[in-house]
Design a protein around this nucleic acid. Sequence first.
DNA 1: CCTGAGCGA
Length: 141
Amino acid sequence: MAMRAAVMAAMAPRGLNRLLSTSPFNFKPPPSSNNPPEADPSPNLFVSGLSKRTTTEGLHEAFSKFGQVVDAKVVTDRVSGYSKGFGFVKYATTEEATVGKQGMHGEFLDGWVIFAEYAKPRPPVTQQQFGNPPFGSYGQR
DNA sequence: CCTGAGCGA
């Protein structure tokens, strides 16, 4: 049947794609003109690029200059006890987090350039603040 | 003390 040829045609070799890439018709740029790496705005800030020697206090002091830091923590390995190179800073409000994020983004901390970004939403792993989703939080492992 | 681009108990 002719159908068999269609199946083989669907299997395009890597080399063929490379040749098609040179064709002006094959250029397929992303649908979006711009692709902002920014995450959803939230009072929680994810700070990366931290020095292995940066501690929670240093992070708190550094970000307190741009707003009221409610909570700050440098993620450390509980086995070795050393910093993992990133941490989290929680501001009182999202707008303060934005100022602090852009204020400390690219700044030097302990000899390393740090990068501030909105932290991703994280499922409850321990006692959470007031305002958990319905049906309670008995789903934690 | 430390290897690094990474999202925590």
